[in-house]
Amino acid sequence: MLKKPSRSAALQAVTGNSTGDGRVVFRTAEGWWSRKIDEAAVADTPEAAAALLAEAQKDADQAQLIVDPYLIEVARTDAGLIATRNREAIRAQGGPTIDVPGASTPVAA
């Protein structure tokens, strides 16, 4: 179970899904996309969050690198950056929370 951090100072990051493989990605401070939430750019004001989302939306609309970018609440912990909501924590960890039938079965050529 996730330990819930204080919500007094909400930090936000941008997430979406890669158009290449559908995996969850996070926008970095350098303007790239990473599968690691620890590499996500973090906004500490609503204005900074809006700016992050606007840049991410360009990657969706113009470059078509990702789909459906949106803001998520994150927190800094001793273990690193974490998503504060269960849904986003599952996505950040690579989800799903159940075994997917055939997911580890190699595809025959």
Rank of each mutant, 00 (worst) to 15 (best):
G94H: 13
I72T: 05
M1S: 11
I90G: 00
A41W: 06
K36R: 14
T84M: 10
G95I: 00
S18V: 01
F26N: 01
V67L: 02
L52A: 06
P5E: 13
L2V: 10
R87C: 04
G20M: 11
A75I: 11
K36C: 06
E55V: 03
G95R: 14
V74N: 11
R87V: 12
R76D: 09
A50G: 10
A60T: 04
G94M: 11
T15C: 02
A56S: 09
T15V: 11
A13S: 15
Q64P: 00
G80Y: 05
A60V: 03
R35I: 14
P46I: 06
I66K: 00
L2D: 06
E88Q: 12
V42K: 01
N17W: 12
W33M: 04
E30S: 15
S18I: 00
R91C: 02
T105I: 06
V100P: 04
I66W: 01
A41N: 02
P46H: 07
L11Y: 04
A92K: 01
L81G: 07
Y70P: 00
L53K: 01
Q62W: 05
A103R: 10
G16E: 00
A40T: 09
V42G: 04
Y70K: 06
G95Q: 13
G94N: 13
T84P: 02
V107R: 09
A54E: 15
V42N: 03
D21I: 04
R91S: 06
E39C: 05
P101D: 06
I98H: 15
V107D: 08
P96I: 03
K4T: 15
L65M: 05
R35T: 15
G94A: 14
A92C: 10
A63G: 00
G22D: 07
R27H: 13
L81N: 08
P5A: 12
R27K: 14
F26Q: 03
I66E: 00
A29W: 10
L52G: 10
E55A: 12
A75M: 08
T77W: 06
P106I: 11
I72W: 11
R87H: 09
D99F: 09
L52D: 02
S8V: 12
R27L: 15
G16T: 01
L65S: 07
G94L: 10
P101I: 08
A13T: 09
A13I: 08
D61V: 08
A79G: 11
T97L: 15
A9V: 13
P101R: 05
L71E: 10
D61R: 08
T28Y: 07
G20C: 07
L53E: 01
A54D: 15
K36H: 09
N17C: 08
R85F: 09
T19N: 10
G20S: 12
A56W: 01
S18C: 10
A75C: 07
Q12A: 03
F26K: 04
A108R: 11
T77I: 12
A92H: 03
E30P: 04
A54Y: 02
Q62D: 14
P69H: 03
G102E: 12
D44Y: 05
K4P: 14
K36D: 15
T77D: 06
M1H: 09
I82E: 13
L53T: 00
